[in-house]
């Protein structure tokens, strides 16, 4: 489904990726682990077409995406990928349900229909009753589940999650991961989750370790 081959990327003089190679199968849930500064987030950003590698190539569904221009990569991220980050993803002016509906609105869905579809996710993610809350009125776990709903609402082919439980306590983090994994499997969505927590990685089908800019270890679970 998605593949990186010998990807290299530097920030100024500092190399972040030194020839990372990785492949993710359709429907697979992959955990990318590694210590701080190892390059795991950078690898995720390259896979998602957020960053363009200096060398190597990235393919999605058999098509190179590192050679696409910014507009085409943006369209790809918007239409085919979903994202969940560690914190601060919700637009503070919008209610929770509007935040979830945002990708649908951006795709041109009418507001009433988008909100109706977004509302359905609130029940699935144990968020019922929080539809009209603003981000400032949600707990960390609730905000992260709203972000998860937003990442999945447009039924993406791949969901990229960068430390999705990094700002949550362990119990809430597990709850979020339970929901993430079950929802992704239900939809057949491929998941690439970056984490430094072994208990999060345990939810994945497979985990790889990034160290010094290279995917050094692959462990089958």
């Amino acid at each position: 489904m998605i593949e990186a081959r010998d990807v290299k990327l530097s920030f100024g003089e500092t190399p972040a990726l030194r020839g990372a190679t990785l492949a993710v199968a359709e429907g697979e849930i992959l955990a990318v682990m590694g210590p701080s500064g190892s390059g795991k987030s950078t690898l995720l950003h390259c896979l998602a077409g957020i960053l363009v590698p200096d060398a190597g190539e990235v393919q999605f569904a058999g098509q190179r995406i590192d050679t696409l221009d910014e507009g085409a990569r943006s369209a790809l991220r918007r239409d085919r990928f979903g994202f969940v980050f560690q914190f601060g993803q919700l637009v503070p002016e919008l209610t929770a349900v509007e935040n979830v509906a945002l990708p649908l609105l951006l795709a041109g869905t009418k507001r009433r229909a988008a909100v109706a579809e977004a509302s359905a996710w609130f029940d699935r993610l144990d968020l019922d009753g929080l539809q009209q809350r603003r981000s400032g009125e949600l707990s960390g776990g609730q905000a992260q589940r709203v972000a998860l709903a937003r990442g999945l609402v447009s039924r993406p082919k791949v969901l990229f999650a960068d430390e999705p439980t990094g700002s949550l306590d362990s119990l809430t983090g597990e709850h979020v991961m339970d929901l993430l994994v079950s929802s992704a499997r239900e939809q057949g969505t491929t998941v690439v989750v970056v984490t430094h927590e072994a208990r999060v990685a345990a939810y994945a089908d497979r985990e790889v370790i990034v160290r010094d800019g290279k995917v050094t270890t692959a462990v089958l679970t």
């Binding site: 950003h45 943006s74 369209a75 918007r78 994202f83 601060g88 993803q89 637009v91 990708p103």
Partner: peptide, 9 residues
């Protein structure tokens, strides 16, 4: 939040 929105396309 705006930069995250941009990342998501």
């Amino acid at each position: 939040p705006f930069s995250v929105l941009r990342l998501t396309g």
